[in-house]
């Protein structure tokens, strides 16, 4: 069966590249969409501007969210999504460089589903992507 896409929000081009490479390395067939900031992410979800074609830009099964982004940061996104009945159920995995306890606590309080600190090695990233796939797409059931 064909999976719904994973939406990845990260303002850092290198990080987007690394995440994409990691997914490829794992042999994933899940479609990936990338946005560069919070504003674009909301546009994608609402099928606005460049993302009007709902048959291409399907509602994501999972969101990988960076915290510190321009225009609208990750915390605002979580807040906004959890307040909107259309996006309330979409799982959000925070993928951030931060490992500050205060950030972690805030994200969970706002309604993130998990918090992952970006690893500093590609190998670590591979491990995380493999785990993510295993957990969210094999072990866990996602809302349809």
């Amino acid at each position: 069966m064909k999976h719904l896409p994973i939406l990845i929000a990260d303002d850092d081009e290198d990080d987007r590249f690394l995440i994409k490479a990691a997914f490829e390395e794992c042999g994933s067939d899940i479609p990936l969409f990338f946005v560069q900031d919070g504003l674009e992410l909301m546009q994608y979800l609402n099928n606005e501007n460049a993302y009007t074609d709902a048959s291409v830009y399907k509602q994501p099964s999972l969101i990988l969210l960076d915290l510190n982004m321009p225009k609208k940061d990750g915390r605002e996104i979580i807040q906004e999504m959890r307040a909107n009945s259309n996006f309330k159920a979409i799982p959000i995995v925070v993928l951030s460089t931060s490992n500050a306890p205060s950030d972690i606590k805030t994200c969970y309080e706002l309604g993130a589903n998990s918090f992952i600190t970006k690893p500093s090695s590609f190998e670590g990233l591979l491990e995380i992507i493999k785990n993510l796939q295993q957990f969210w797409f094999v072990t866990a059931s996602l809302p349809q």
Partner: peptide, 18 residues
């Protein structure tokens, strides 16, 4: 300083793996 360093590590790591 962490940011670019993390990428240096990740890219050289990726290079080695891929």
């Amino acid at each position: 300083m962490q940011e670019p360093l993390r990428k240096i590590r990740a890219f050289s790591d990726m290079l080695l793996i891929r």
